[in-house]
């Protein structure tokens, strides 16, 4: 029984690492990081080689990629979207903005940084980061995703 269970847990962890689905959210950034992020989908970098799919709905996603300092208008949406993602989930902060506010810090319309609202697991520094760095950040996030507890179909914890 124990061996079966551990096989199941290993399988689930492995599967998680092989199929992370992303949800990308711009919290009021300048679009620089978004363009670099989309460059990851181009044939040159092709995130699909890691089994990644860019999803339109946060309900389907495992990894939340946030770019931009959190502005007053996007803050509520950010928290809603984070709450809508089903449990094992990690957050990747892309670029300097979500980490600190960057040049937008102390602006009256900026309420960031990101970690004030949701826990951040991986930071990708850069303004904007190169697609390679974003890929590396997502690979780091995948490692974090694997360590999250495994739950069965009914939501019962197995490990």
């Amino acid at each position: 029984m124990e061996a079966k269970l551990s096989f199941f847990v290993h399988l689930v962890r492995y599967a998680r690492g092989r199929s992370p689905w992303l949800f990308h959210l711009n919290c009021g950034g300048c679009n620089g990081c978004d363009i670099e992020f989309l460059a990851c989908l181009t044939p040159r970098y092709d995130v699909e080689q890691l089994g990644i799919r860019l999803e339109g709905s946060p309900r389907h996603a495992d990894i939340l990629c946030v770019s931009g300092p959190v502005t007053r208008n996007t803050q509520a949406a950010l928290q809603t979207i984070y709450a809508q993602m089903p449990a094992p989930k990690v957050v990747v902060a892309i670029g300097s903005c979500p980490a600190s506010g960057n040049v937008f810090a102390d602006s009256p319309s900026v309420v960031g940084p990101l970690e004030k609202f949701i826990p951040v697991d991986v930071y990708v520094p850069g303004c904007p980061p190169r697609p390679n760095a974003i890929l590396e950040g997502i690979a780091n996030a995948i490692e974090q995703l694997k360590t999250k507890p495994v739950t069965g179909i009914g939501g019962k914890s197995h490990a």
Binding site: A15, R18, P43, D46, P88, V150, I153
Partner: peptide, 25 residues
């Protein structure tokens, strides 16, 4: 067709396993 490498062979299987073990809302 887009000159990309595409997902590995086992992709739909792992997608399924992962989705089945996500915490339901």
């Amino acid at each position: 067709l887009q000159s990309r490498i595409g997902p590995p062979f086992y992709q739909p299987f792992f997608d399924f396993i992962k989705l089945m073990t996500k915490e339901p809302l």
